[in-house]
């Protein structure tokens, strides 16, 4: 059977997640339960949402270095304004999404490198978050708490949420016309332009959509942690980029995979637990996590090379 390059792209992340999961179950059989799975993947939900947001930005050949601070900012808004006066909170979120859309436009019109613009914006979001919550605190709105801790029958919430996120974003990015345009801009924006589309509008919409997912990520995070902190999600910038790449995405060329991105986020979350189960001291964990990343990426390179060799023959 001939596999399309898209399917091939998904195999590696799926296999690595399965292997990691098998290893965790082998070491800690009790994790193989409803509660165990929920605990393992709980924190993966906000990471998955942030990864999807990052993936959208990467689909148009940009990179968002403010993802971590922006999610922290959204978490702070959720724990303060959204909880105290929901209307005000929603308004702030809408404003933040508009700011992202404007950022996309500026990057496009002025042909600025997205890395520089988003790096600058990261200080802006971080500052706003500190202004709102100078010290850790706040409280999760009741409905968010309820949503994130609800217990659907048979399958834990963390898994249900991941599947829903993967399905929705797959439809949005891979199947819908809008998704085709987003990836088209990443692949060859001049040809999209020549076909009569407004690339600036597509970029703005992509950035706005990414902001929406980042906002959801912040809300989900507060739902799990019950309170927020201005530095709560700083790791998310690099985690989200790693998740996209782990899931088969590429930095340029509009080659992304939403299902892969969600799987990548799950793998990253699981890698942390796996290393704890291995009783590796926290001092070494970051390095070990990096090693896992390198192994997976090496596998993918190897597979790409095989694929290319097959094509030649």
């Amino acid at each position: 059977m001939k596999l399309s390059s898209g399917t091939l792209r998904l195999i590696i992340p799926a296999v690595s997640l399965a292997l990691l999961l098998a290893a965790v179950f082998y070491m800690q059989p009790r994790a193989m339960s409803y509660t165990g799975l929920n605990l393992l993947f709980n924190l993966a939900v906000p990471i998955a949402l942030a990864t999807v947001a990052q993936m959208l930005i990467m689909a148009v050949n940009d990179l968002d270095l403010s993802m971590g601070t922006f999610v922290s900012f959204c978490a702070c808004v959720t724990a303060t304004f959204l909880q105290a006066s929901p209307a005000m909170g929603v308004l702030i979120f809408l404003g933040a999404i508009a700011a992202y859309a404007a950022m996309g436009m500026i990057i496009h019109v002025r042909e600025l490198p997205s890395i520089v613009v988003t790096l600058g914006m990261s200080f802006f979001w971080g500052g706003l978050a500190v202004l709102m919550l100078p010290s850790p605190g706040g409280e999760a709105p009741g409905w968010v708490r309820w949503l994130m801790t609800s217990k659907p029958p048979f399958v834990p919430m963390a898994i249900v949420a991941s599947v829903v996120i993967a399905a929705v974003t797959h439809f949005l990015i891979m199947r819908s016309s809008f998704g085709v345009l987003i990836r088209g801009v990443g692949g060859n924006f001049r040809s999209v332009e020549r076909a009569g589309w407004s690339v600036i509008r597509i970029r703005a919409a992509t950035y706005a959509l990414a902001a929406l997912f980042a906002v959801l990520s912040g809300i989900a995070l507060v739902g799990l942690t019950t309170s927020a902190d201005a530095n709560i999600a700083l790791r998310y910038t690099l985690l989200s980029i790693a998740g996209v790449i782990l899931g088969g995405g590429e930095f340029v060329g509009g080659r992304v995979s939403p299902i892969g991105a969600v799987i990548g986020a799950l793998t990253l979350a699981l890698a942390g637990s796996f290393l704890s189960f291995m009783r590796i001291s926290p001092d070494w964990q970051i390095g070990a996590q990096g090693a896992i990343l390198i192994v997976v990426l090496a596998l993918r390179l190897f597979l790409n090379r095989l694929e290319r060799r097959e094509k030649i023959q």
Binding site: R183, N188, S191, V192, G253, G254, R255
Partner: peptide
């Protein structure tokens, strides 16, 4: 003259 399709689609 230069091919102008989106190669990733």
């Amino acid at each position: 003259q230069e091919l102008s399709l989106c190669p990733n689609l």
